[in-house]
């Protein structure tokens, strides 16, 4: 079995993985970081989005061994101790969630969108979230949250 070393939320981990172990499975079942959700498992819903070296991917559509040596950030890596990341705080303020299942992927995606484009427009936010599905249809509050989160991230 391949032996991989990954840096997840700043912590280095070395583990053996089966070739067919998905990154999402590795994160949830090996690293016990269950904030990354598996919604559809068909790479459509975006609940499993994590950030690899600053780029978001769907962790259910990649294998763990592909990220040997990579820096991986999951939803658990956003907050600074008990202090929420500004985007998490904005989701809380605007109630940008109902059941919360899609929220980890939404927040990871929103942070990447703003990091790539600090002055992102509302249209840019809407288009940028096209790979993330919310079944409670709470999109309006999510858009409001991302706008506020973007403003807070700009500082």
């Amino acid at each position: 079995m391949p032996l991989i070393t990954v840096h997840v939320n700043g912590v280095e981990t070395t583990k053996e993985v089966e070739p067919r172990t998905l990154l999402s499975t590795f994160i949830r079942e090996e690293l016990k970081l269950t904030g990354t959700h598996v919604g559809c498992d068909t790479s459509q819903c975006g609940a499993c989005v994590v950030s690899i070296d600053g780029k978001t991917i769907k962790s259910c559509a990649s294998f763990a061994w592909q990220f040997d040596g990579a820096k991986i950030q999951t939803i658990e890596g956003l907050a600074n101790g008990t202090e929420l990341h500004p985007m998490q705080e904005a989701f809380r303020t605007h109630h940008g969630l109902q059941c919360g299942f899609c929220t980890p992927g939404m927040v990871m995606t929103a942070v990447a969108l703003v990091e790539n484009n600090p002055d992102i427009s509302e249209n840019g936010i809407r288009e940028g979230l096209e790979g993330n599905i919310c079944r409670c249809t709470g999109y309006q509050n999510i858009i409001d949250a991302v706008k506020t989160g973007a403003k807070a991230m700009r500082g």
């Binding site: 989005v49 991917i57 769907k58 995606t109 940028g128 096209e130 790979g131």
Partner: peptide
């Protein structure tokens, strides 16, 4: 193509 996450891979 697809969405941002798919385009990154």
């Amino acid at each position: 193509i697809g969405d941002m996450h798919v385009r990154n891979r």
